[in-house]
Design a protein around this nucleic acid. Structure first.
Length: 746
DNA sequence: GAACCATGTCATATT
DNA sequence: GGAATATGACATGGT
């Protein structure tokens, strides 16, 4: 923490210096924060913005801890789809970064750049969280995350001061661009139609003028990094491909116009520490507090409709895009494709199956990649990061529940002077690995429980029988996976967007402190197992008073509406004893019934056991008829609940698919209309040419006396044999071959 | 209090 | 035929 504070304190000073140097274009690169934070914002490491855990919070809304927020994660999934589709739009990485970094202040202000966004009325959730972290609601740069795409801006929205600064820099860069042009560096990658249309849309081309410099700088940077790969691979246990992918991510965030905009980046950095240091006029109102989901679909449809005709088929493979070399960069950039990087950059962390630093990565990695100067002068920045081991010697004191922060701190201990972006990326990657493995992080019960809650509360799918004593073998665990619910424990955690909705209890997170206090805490076990059978070797468990299996049975008893009313969450949480309140919260109807009947199994177990084992379980115990009925009801309802969730999720997916289909059809329609217009224009031209030809031919015709024929009396007709006949207007064909056409088309 | 949404539950159909 | 799953309809709670 000391290093963190020191870092940001220094960062404030540096930003202040930076502000004073903006107009002079002094090289302040070494003092700038790493790219990672420039783009993502320091909040990504200092705060739990949950950029990597959007499963818990999407669209600024908390996801119900016990059930999947279908809308939320589907929205994220849809956004991901869009982001992936961006791969196929041939928009340069720089452009895409612009979209991602900048925010749309107001959906209605698309045509009014520079107009301040309505910042009142926070939307809560991530949005507010980000705003809180940055310290100023006017600060436009929140950490990039999936949901941020909802408010991404396609229009470079600039405040007046920002425009002035940019104009100054633009003037300065004009010379440089001319130099590039003289040296053949001005050969930009072929600008995609989407870019052109986007620029047409916004009526601004200033960013185009800059891209040349960025491309050039990027090529240089890429070349230098490419030179590092030989030593890199020699020192590293990583494969070159993994390194490339890592750097690909780096490029995806560190490249583009935003990076060369020291004003914005520096301001963002400064404002997070102290908003008072922010130079207000330079702050463009980028942070939108409007509803992030506001008209997102419509906006995208509009955008796509504008960009559509040439990209109706957005299903181009990423490989094709990668091979297309649209970036046109040399050296490393031939391997590191910017377009693809976005895809990976915004994948849910758990989706990064092939991430270079997945938990499977073992051993130590040491990379040194001194980056070359960029347009912001980030030269002489020794970039060194060490991935010592996946065991992660994490100094986690005081970093409760914030693994990101912990890792950040760890890196600072390693490199207190210059935390580099690669290491930060590594941190995230390592966190992913931790998330994958559910590693306890050696934080103690509280930290681990919080982490677990963050990791686990996304979909309520974490029940995993692989740790169940009854199913010690992996095969048996996989047999449980046959059901969509229990199977998704691992699946959902790794792929929340695709995992089936499962049946789970969030009691683990609720009761963790108690559990941690009772005995050795094992978040892994707690995460994976139902709390009631953490004790190995038994299905037959005594009914524990504090073992909860909240299956969200908050419904009141069907025959007891009064009681149901009483189960409503009380506004005054302090009006009831803790135990009662907890009981009301965590004990659902069936659980209470099971409790009353002293059923010795957890509801998780009842619901998720395969039928054979379930029946075996029932036969092993002397159960009354009422108990058996209730157990079967619990099982039926639990399974049906999962089924209902899956069903609704599918419905939503179908709806979204239909929406996308409609959008695609609209784009196709627009394209067809344009083709029709072109065809009509072509036909018109052909008619004109034909008329001209007709007049020319007719003008050369003469009667027997050598007088020109009157067009009012005669007409030319085309015979079946390709001959042109002269006919009178009254219908009689003059027996005279006016002309022989060698070619009918002539 | 109505409207809307999310979720659980039931009944039934389908796999 | 039974279990699992899918789905429409309804009820309930929350906002």
């Amino acid at each position: 923490m000391v290093y963190l504070k020191k870092y940001f304190t220094e960062g404030l000073i540096q930003v202040a210096i930076l502000l004073s140097l903006v107009g002079n274009k002094i090289d302040v690169g070494p003092y700038l924060p790493p790219w990672h934070e420039m783009i993502l914002g320091p909040t990504s490491t200092l705060a739990q913005t949950r950029f990597h855990n959007l499963r818990n919070q999407l669209d600024g809304r908390d996801i119900h801890p016990k059930s999947v927020d279908l809308d939320g994660f589907l929205t994220a999934r849809r956004l991901l789809g869009w982001v992936r589709s961006l791969d196929c739009l041939h928009v340069s990485g720089s452009e895409l970064e612009t979209w991602l970094v900048r925010r749309e202040p107001d959906a209605l202000a698309m045509g009014a750049p520079g107009q301040p966004a309505a910042l009142d009325g926070g939307t809560g959730g991530l949005e507010d969280h980000a705003a809180d972290q940055v310290g100023s609601p006017e600060l436009g740069y929140g950490p990039i995350r999936e949901s941020s795409l909802e408010s991404m801006v396609l229009v470079p929205r600039r405040g007046q001061e920002e425009e002035e600064v940019e104009d100054d820099l633009y003037r300065e860069d004009t010379e440089t661009r001319q130099d590039y042009s003289n040296h053949g560096h001005n050969e930009r990658p072929e600008q995609s139609l989407e870019e052109r249309r986007e620029n047409e849309l916004v009526g601004s081309t200033w960013r185009e003028d800059w891209r040349d410099n960025y491309d050039h700088a990027n090529r240089e940077l890429a070349q230098d990094l490419s030179d590092q790969f030989a030593s890199l691979e020699a020192q590293s246990s990583m494969s070159l491909q993994e390194c490339l992918r890592l750097l690909e991510d780096t490029f995806s965030f560190g490249e583009g116009p935003e990076r060369s905009d020291p004003v914005d980046l520096g301001l963002r950095e400064a404002s997070e520490e102290d908003p008072s240091l922010v130079h207000e006029p330079l702050l463009s109102p980028l942070l939108s507090h409007a509803d992030p989901s506001l008209d997102l679909e419509l906006q995208w449809q509009d955008i796509l409709a504008i960009m559509e005709p040439e990209d109706t088929d957005v299903d181009l493979s990423r490989d094709a895009v990668m091979q297309s070399g649209s970036i046109g960069s040399s050296g490393l950039m031939d391997h590191v494709h910017q377009d693809v990087s976005l895809h990976q950059a915004f994948l849910p962390r758990s989706n990064l199956d092939g991430y270079p630093f997945s938990p499977s990565l073992e051993g130590s990695v040491h990379l040194e990649a001194p980056l070359q100067p960029t347009s912001i002068g980030a030269d002489n920045l020794p970039l060194t990061f060490e991935l010592v081991d996946t065991a992660l010697p994490l100094p986690l004191d005081g970093l409760v529940g914030n693994p990101t922060l912990s890792l950040q701190s760890s890196i600072f201990l390693e490199e207190p002077v210059q935390p580099n972006p690669l290491s930060l990326l590594l941190d995230d990657a390592l966190l992913d690995g931790i998330s994958f493995l559910g590693l306890p992080l050696e934080e103690g019960p509280t930290q681990a429980s919080e982490l677990e809650e963050e990791l686990d509360s996304d979909s309520g799918l974490s029940l995993n029988f692989s740790h169940s004593p009854a199913s010690p073998s992996g095969s048996e665990a996989s047999s449980y996976s046959s059901s969509s619910s229990s199977s998704s424990s691992s699946e959902s955690s790794s792929s929340p967007s695709e995992g089936a909705v499962g049946y789970n209890s969030n009691m683990a997170s609720i009761l963790e402190p108690e559990e941690g206090a009772v005995g050795g805490y094992s978040p892994e076990v707690s995460k994976m197992c139902s709390t009631s059978y953490q004790n190995p070797g038994r299905y037959n468990l005594p009914w524990l008073e504090h073992v909860g299996h909240d299956h969200n049975y908050h419904q009141p008893r069907a025959n007891s509406p009064t009681l149901g009313k009483s189960l409503k969450p009380q506004k005054s949480h302090y009006s009831k004893p803790y135990e009662c309140e907890l009981s009301d919260k965590i004990w659902g109807r069936d659980e209470r019934r099971a409790r009353a009947l002293k059923i010795p199994f957890s509801n998780d177990l009842i619901v998720n056991l395969p039928v054979e084992e379930f029946n075996e379980l029932l036969t092993k115990h002397r159960l009354s008829e009422a108990q058996l009925n209730l157990i079967r009801d619990i099982r039926r309802r639990g399974k049906n609940k999962m089924a209902a969730q899956n069903c609704r999720r599918r419905k939503l997916e179908i709806l979204f698919g239909l929406e996308e289909g409609v959008a695609g059809l609209r784009r196709h329609k627009v394209r067809l209309l344009k083709e029709k217009a072109e065809n009509l224009r072509s036909v018109r031209e052909m008619k004109q040419r034909l008329n001209g030809l007709y007049r020319e031919v007719f003008s050369r015709l003469q009667d027997e006396q050598g007088r020109p024929l009157s067009a009012t009396n005669y007409t030319l007709q085309l015979g079946n044999d390709g001959q042109v006949l002269l006919a009178t207007r009254n219908g009689s064909t003059r027996e005279q071959k006016a002309h022989k056409k060698q070619d009918r088309r002539k």
